[in-house]
């Protein structure tokens, strides 16, 4: 009986927390594959509303992210700010896991799909179908989804008004293949105690994900490409782990890089240490193109 009441309360909370429309299991044909995605459409979404992509991690799914309590706040914030949320699904990679093609060693020669093209094609499709903005397109993602944030910053900087990576990495393969061609408003949130996507990097591919840059070096590369010149360091009010924001600004383009260093934080959205969903959406709002 208690379980039924708890379930009922949860359902009521979910209903009240996000009042928009869920559109599950939408599909689009892309590069010879049928790709799936879920949408969260706030009520009374106006034409030209911003579009936010939320990318899941390696082995994860769009559905688990769509239903995740950890990042449920994205839906509340989408309601408040009238943003269309899109949760795309990665395809199955050569290790038989759902994975975005970010040049992990086992993906390099065996995975043909270009996920950067897929995300951009999906954006165009949603712009046509739902009349959302073609300028205010935003991207966030966690872990493997965070790696997509860096890869899209390299390859498609002009397609996004701002990008926010959560526990993402720059694989050295990315840096070898691409250069940052245009400035991009970028955010990284990363735990110094992240044992999966290690703060100090992995230059020799000791841990199997492929060689990757130390996180401060990866963020520094975006700041350098933007030509940010000033740094402002502030510590957020402590909830659990200490969170230090390094704000790099003063770039000719005005595009800033925000680096949230979560002291001793692990491989997660860091929602127990600060309201990361809200911080990401606020960053997107600040970079909204008029």
């Amino acid at each position: 009986m208690k379980k039924i009441i708890a379930l009922f309360v949860t359902l009521v909370l979910c209903y009240t927390a996000s009042a928009g429309t869920n559109k599950m299991n939408q599909t689009i044909e892309d590069q010879g594959l049928t790709r799936r995605y879920h949408l969260y459409i706030p009520n009374d979404l106006p034409d030209g509303a911003p579009l936010v992509f939320i990318l899941h991690g390696y082995g994860g799914s769009a559905e688990s992210y769509f239903n995740s309590g950890t990042i449920a706040n994205f839906k509340t914030l989408a309601d408040e700010n009238k943003m269309l949320l899109c949760y795309p699904q990665a395809s199955v990679d050569p290790k038989s896991k759902n994975g975005w093609n970010v040049y992990y060693p086992w993906q390099i020669n065996a995975m043909k799909v270009d996920d950067c093209e897929f995300i951009c094609n999906l954006a165009k499709h949603l712009q046509t179908t739902y009349k959302v903005s073609d300028k205010n397109v935003f991207l966030t993602g966690m872990s493997n989804g965070g790696e997509m944030c860096y890869l899209l910053a390299y390859r498609k900087p002009n397609e996004f008004a701002a990008i926010a990576s959560m526990a993402g990495l720059t694989l050295i393969e990315m840096a070898d293949r691409h250069n940052y061609e245009s400035p991009v408003a970028f955010m990284e949130v990363h735990g110094t105690g992240d044992m999966t996507s290690r703060w100090e990097g992995d230059a020799t591919n000791q841990y199997g994900w492929g060689a990757y840059l130390p996180v401060p070096v990866a963020v520094g590369a975006v700041a350098a490409a933007n030509k940010c010149v000033y740094e402002q360091t502030t510590e957020l009010p402590q909830v659990k782990n200490r969170v230090i924001l390094h704000r790099y600004y003063g770039a000719p383009s005005g595009k800033e890089v925000h680096f949230y260093e979560v002291r001793n934080g692990g491989h997660n959205w860091a929602t127990d240490s600060f309201d990361s969903c809200n911080v990401i959406i606020e960053f997107f709002k600040k970079n909204m193109v008029k």
């Binding site: 230059a203 590369a221 350098a224 010149v229 000033y230």
Partner: peptide, 19 residues
């Protein structure tokens, strides 16, 4: 400019991969 960003700009052009 900031010292971190000054040094970071050289690290970026060098493509240094570890520290």
């Amino acid at each position: 400019a900031s010292v971190s960003l000054s040094v970071g700009a050289v690290v970026a052009i060098n493509e240094n991969i570890t520290y």
